[in-house]
Design a protein around this nucleic acid. Structure first.
Lengths: 191, 191
DNA sequence: ATTGATATACCGTCTGGACGGTATATATTG
DNA sequence: CAATATATACCGTCCAGACGGTATATCAAT
């Protein structure tokens, strides 16, 4: 105890949130305990419980942070697309299969980790994400594409996301590019 | 204790496997304990541990049962499709978006539950599924479609599966049918 | 009587959470 | 300004319960 810690650059609350994510990512969902998260953040268990009244409260906060972030990022991605039919679907393609600013990266990995941990503790904790997904689906439905085409694009992105969550497979960059081309075809009205 | 149980129709081993799945599905992954699984199967904890030496062994058996089943079911589904290019992709479309014999049903839900529980205990436990997925991806790659198109179809199916796992949303039958139509477009060579 | 199948009792560990205490910063007041 | 009070941000300890797993007993069938 009383080990000398490096000067804390972020406030304890943020450090705990980050540490908890790190823990899930490199030790697994089952290793996330409030004690371990506290240690990782350079805080005592009591200190953690000051900021988050319970493990559930911690998970709620983790989830809120990530789902807010995801929602904002996606909205930004949509706005970066040209207006007109298929705008939302195009954003989804860039989000899941592109290589630019909005490509999947470690933030998505962190989000996935949080979703899993929250779901494990209590499936109801995912409600904030469900709300975000519902909004996305509504946007897709009102996107001006042939019915079902936007939903198929979204599902394909989700599929890749799931593969990442469970490390089922890791598509090569070439494969992602090819999938992107395929999905772009679905932006055209059915003949 | 010693509550009178209905005559056990199945052998204890199968009953334990089923009970464990039930537990995950309607109480959540975190509620799966060997004690609870034993109770659900009408067996004592010792009885369960006779058949499955540890919780990990139980999860392994649960996973093996489901992944064998999934693999066999998918193979059957492929064989039911007409030969020729896109056979595997067509099977995937029917599997994930069709309404017939191979449509997703509660067996998929049970599989999803098992995957989650196994992943939580130890991500490496998913290796049997990863092998199945790898085989599927190889089959898709050799399916004779424009590169990436089969992978996109597969990803869309996976996306719907993920939505089911986490109860993110439940597409209507009409929506599934529309998605199916969209994906069928990807069977045609790119113009 | 041996073996397979199941029950009972128990142990050690881990975890979430409660609790009491401490140091520092920030008002409030005389 | 000094003294006092209050809030904030932690720390370290302790405990009850849950859980996985072991050891041993029972019992039916061959």
């Amino acid at each position: 105890m009383n080990v000398i810690q490096p000067a804390p650059l972020l406030d304890a609350r943020t450090r705990v949130l980050d540490a908890a994510e790190d823990l899930i990512i490199d030790r697994g969902v089952s290793r996330l305990t409030i004690e371990a998260a506290a240690r990782g953040a350079g805080v005592s268990k009591g200190g953690l419980l000051y900021h988050f009244a319970s493990k559930e409260a911690l998970l709620e906060a983790m989830l809120r942070r990530r789902s807010d972030f995801i929602a904002a990022e996606f909205e930004h991605c949509v706005r970066s697309q040209a207006e007109g039919p298929g705008r939302v679907a195009r954003a989804m393609i860039e989000w899941g299969f592109g290589t630019g600013e909005f490509a999947c990266d470690d933030r998505h990995e962190r989000a996935a980790a949080v979703f899993l941990a929250a779901f494990h503790h209590d499936p109801a904790l995912l409600d904030p994400i469900r709300a975000v997904v519902t909004k996305m689906r509504e946007a897709v439905a009102a996107d001006g594409l042939t019915a079902g085409h936007g939903a198929a694009i979204m599902a394909a992105g989700d599929g890749l996301f799931m593969a990442k969550i469970f490390s089922l497979y890791k598509p090569t960059e070439a494969e992602r590019a090819e999938m992107r081309v395929a999905l772009i075809r679905l932006l055209e009205p059915a003949s």
